[in-house]
Design a protein around this nucleic acid. Structure first.
Length: 859
DNA sequence: CAAACTGG
């Protein structure tokens, strides 16, 4: 085999970042070569691209690398491309290169730079000088001690990253070294902590378990090392249990999976034999039913169950129940409205119960009724309602419909994704929901139990009631729990289910088919039928994926020819992004057919090649696009001149309203909104997307993260949207398909539903209801089958106390970072475990002395 | 495998 030529010690200056892959360190930079090698291929301006696992570098940064020529990438970027074989850390030795580095370091302080050049000789090793302690006492004319200190610290950072890189070698990426140094700001401390427990890197450098595990293995950590087991068991529970929607699993299954996935014998998994040890690892065992769950998940589900019980006990009616009917009738008279009995029941539920649910499928008037509820209780209950939703798009729709402010749960509660337990800038005296009397959460089918918990734990049920609105037959959340279903199954939760359909013609085929699925009846056709056509539904049996694809394209073109390029006129719904009938392939093909490139017309072309499709992204005038970001702050463009004209919206908190409730800026552009490309300016590198009647500015640089083609979309993204003609596609090997996903696609239809796919697959998969197979403990806790105090060997108070203790001790890596250096260079988990056990025993002893609350019998 | 959330 031909040996690749390595070009060593090439100094490169970063020009720009061309491609940045999320979730990995793979980057593509355009760079300038500072010390040209005679054999290197390069452009006239000495430019090349470099690719590989690198840290993030700012423009003008200088790096030193060994390079290997990369023929394939050279075709992609129209420049000779090189792979980074090795990065050299630390300070360059030659004075000339040291000066180059300090030039880039001080690019924004030209005066300081000039004074350094004046004071030091050109052949002085400037970085080496600044890395010595003596620099503190040096007197450089015109450069103050604070500035000297700043430069020295920056250089020390570079040196310390080099120390880390030297210590661990190629086992970790340069990005990781930078993150570790930033976390500890002390190389020695970092090495001690990471060597003692490599798995701490999962938090420190946001690496996943598999990456850290490979690193730990290369460092000689044994497969049955306690740190490894602790991290590995949590990882398996998160990836194999919680993402399936489950919140617990059988001990037997978990033990077997853990042994297989971690490559250890079941004898090594000692936590399963000892409830106390399991607790130290963060798990709870229920030996009676052979169940195991994580402490965190149990605390969440248990807290939700408790809060729901409290809600029912402490809530007082918003207005006097005796007056409700009279006031409601007056309200309806004044607005000339009529409601049915189901809808009236919803008013009574909301008025009387701390927690209630409004359930109903598409077209039953949920949104219409929600609007009435908001305005009725706003007028009658002396305190404005707070409107929330799990997604930006749902919040936007709710705000538009009610003409009241609505926000995402995260935006309203000041939560950062992934850190929902704490507000990022909590004000001590801020009562979350102010004097609000009613909190409405729309699209509640998308709520995981942890997200429902973040809402519920902030509610004072003496003041306010909560209403969850949703359609339990839509897609369940991607994440643990089945919150809406559990609410509906619980006798104590006041639920209204709307069944009368107003939107669809009751004779329509779509409605009939949707009802069959809801009622769990067999679909009205066989696996070998050619087609099923009834009313506005047409399903075609097609087994070959290639033909399914072609049929979908053809149906879309026909719908387009009939109805034109109107928003919401036609929509192609798929189950997956990638694959032969995936979203990306459909969009590429539909764009080429529906909106092909025309000579002389401006185009947006991405500067990189999409690693999934192996193509560059193109956007042209009139392309249908979907917006992927929630924005409360949007630059608008004048559609006559295409000049930027105004900025709509502001970030952050609005003023307190007359009821003392904090109000929030609305989401102007939401993830999931669709629009049309209205203008492209290739010279000034921006394009304009028309969404509704607004023209929004997107710089070319923001396009990859902000926009995607929207001819075809996944069924998840289609939730909450409607189209006249819906074309649904099912691939023979579609594991995403189930009754709820098909139901969701079906109920997006306003006039015509067309389906292409294998009837055998459709018939088999629509027998699967995710709602049935998602097991959680919340349902059992609400029904009284389980109680929080008797699920495991520990009472709920003991579990919460233990979690609280763990959060404040060095077990959590974030706390470990701020903690003092460990006494010994390595501190095995076994040693720590006995300490933990002592503390655990103290905790258990202490809390058992507290008055024990019984589950029942207090009232 | 599917997706949601934010701030600077």
């Amino acid at each position: 085999m031909e040996q690749a030529q390595v070009y060593e010690n090439v100094d490169l200056q970063i020009i720009k970042l061309l491609f940045n892959s999320d979730g990995s360190d793979y980057k593509v930079y355009a760079v300038r070569i500072l010390n040209p090698h005679p054999e290197l291929k390069m452009t006239l301006t000495q430019e090349i691209t470099v690719t590989g696992d690198m840290g993030y570098y700012n423009r003008r940064a200088i790096i030193t690398a060994d390079l290997v020529y990369d023929d394939a990438d050279s075709l992609r970027y129209r420049k000779p491309s090189y792979k980074v074989a090795r990065l050299h850390f630390g300070l360059p030795k030659e004075p000339r290169r040291q000066w180059q580095l300090i030039d880039t370091l001080l690019v924004h302080q030209p005066t300081v730079l000039r004074r350094l050049h004046d004071y030091f000789a050109d052949d002085a090793p400037i970085l080496t000088i600044f890395s010595k302690d003596e620099i503190k006492t040096a007197r450089i004319p015109g450069v103050g001690p604070a500035t000297v200190q700043k430069i020295a610290t920056a250089i020390r950072g570079k040196l310390e990253v080099a120390v880390l890189a030297n210590h661990w070698g190629k086992a970790l990426s340069s990005m990781t070294y930078e993150k570790i140094w930033l976390a500890y700001k002390d190389a020695e401390l970092a090495m001690q902590h990471v060597d003692a427990n490599p798995y701490i890197l999962m938090q420190v450098a946001q690496l996943d378990f598999k990456k850290v595990d490979a690193f730990a293995k290369s460092r000689g950590v044994a497969p049955n090392d306690s740190h490894r087991l602790a991290a590995g068991l949590q990882y398996i529970f998160r990836t194999a249990v919680l993402t399936q929607g489950l919140t617990y699993i059988t001990i037997t299954w978990f033990k077997e999976q853990a042994a297989t996935l971690l490559g250890v014998s079941t004898d090594d998994l000692t936590m399963f034999a000892d409830p106390k040890q399991a607790l130290a690892y963060g798990f709870l065992l229920n030996e009676q039913y052979d169940l195991v769950t994580s402490c965190d998940m149990f605390a969440t589900e248990g807290s939700v169950a408790r809060i729901m019980a409290v809600a029912q006990k402490t809530a007082e009616p918003l207005i006097k129940p005796a007056e409700l009917d009279e006031k409601l009738d007056k309200f309806l008279d004044r607005h000339q409205l009529v409601i049915n009995d189901q809808q009236r029941a919803a008013f009574q539920n909301v008025n009387q119960h701390g927690l209630s649910v409004l359930n109903g499928s598409a077209g039953t008037g949920k949104t219409w009724l929600t609007n009435l509820l908001v305005h009725f209780f706003n007028a009658q209950a002396k305190g404005k309602s707070v409107l929330l939703a799990p997604t930006g798009r749902a919040a936007k729709v709710l705000a538009r419909y009610t003409h009241e402010p609505a926000a995402t749960i995260h935006a309203y509660l000041h939560l950062l994704p992934g850190e929902e337990l704490d507000r990022f800038d909590a004000e001590a005296d801020w009562e979350t929901f102010g004097d609000a009397r009613l909190i409405i959460v729309d699209e509640s089918s998308m709520l995981t139990t942890p997200l429902a918990y973040t809402v519920l734990k902030n509610v004072n049920f003496k003041k306010a009631h909560v209403l969850f609105v949703g359609d339990v037959f839509q897609l369940p959340p991607i994440g643990p729990g089945n919150f809406l279903k559990d609410c509906l199954a619980d006798d104590h939760v006041a639920a209204t289910t709307l069944t009368r359909v107003y939107r669809q013609d009751s004779q329509s085929g779509v409605l009939a088919l949707a009802n069959r699925i809801r009622d769990r009846l067999a679909l009205p056709f066989g696996p070998d039928d050619d087609r099923y056509v009834s009313g506005n539904v047409a399903l075609y049996n097609q087994r070959d994926a290639g033909r399914v694809f072609d049929a979908g394209i053809k149906a879309y073109q026909e719908a387009l020819a009939k109805h034109g390029h109107q928003p919401d006129s036609q929509l192609l719904i798929v189950n997956k992004n990638i694959g032969a009938t995936g979203r990306l392939r459909f969009n590429a093909e539909l764009q080429a057919l529906v909106n092909p490139a025309r000579a002389g017309e401006p185009e947006y072309v991405s500067s990189y090649v999409d690693p999934v499709t192996n193509q560059k992204h193109h956007l042209r005038l009139n392309d249908r696009v979907m917006i992927l970001k929630n924005d409360k702050h949007v630059a608008l463009v004048d559609p006559k001149t295409w000049e930027r004209r105004a900025v709509l919206g502001e970030n952050g908190l609005q003023k307190t309203d007359e009821f003392g409730t904090k109000r929030w800026r609305e989401t102007i552009m939401a993830n999931g909104d669709t629009g049309v490309v209205a203008h492209i300016d290739p010279k000034r590198h921006f394009l304009v997307v028309q969404v509704g009647n607004q023209y929004c500015y997107y710089s070319f640089g923001s396009v990859p993260r902000a926009l995607t083609l929207a001819y075809a979309i996944t069924v998840h993204k289609a939730q909450g949207g409607q189209a006249d003609t819906v074309i649904a596609i099912v691939n023979g090997a579609d594991r995403m398909l189930n009754a709820q996903s098909f139901y969701t696609a079906l109920t997006r239809t306003q006039s015509q539903f067309i389906f292409f796919g294998d009837f055998r697959v459709l018939l088999a998969r629509t027998k699967i209801y995710p709602i049935d197979s998602r097991h959680d403990l919340l349902g059992s806790l609400l029904s009284g089958q389980l109680t929080v105090d008797t699920f495991s060997r520990f009472t709920f108070e003991q579990i919460l106390t233990w979690l609280d203790h763990q959060r404040h001790q060095g077990i959590q890596p974030r706390a470990a970072i701020t903690a003092a250096k460990p006494e010994a260079a390595t501190q095995p988990f076994a040693v720590r475990y006995t300490e933990q056990l002592d503390i655990l025993n103290q905790v258990v002893e202490k809390v058992t002395k507290l008055p024990v609350k019984k589950a029942t019998g207090e009232g």
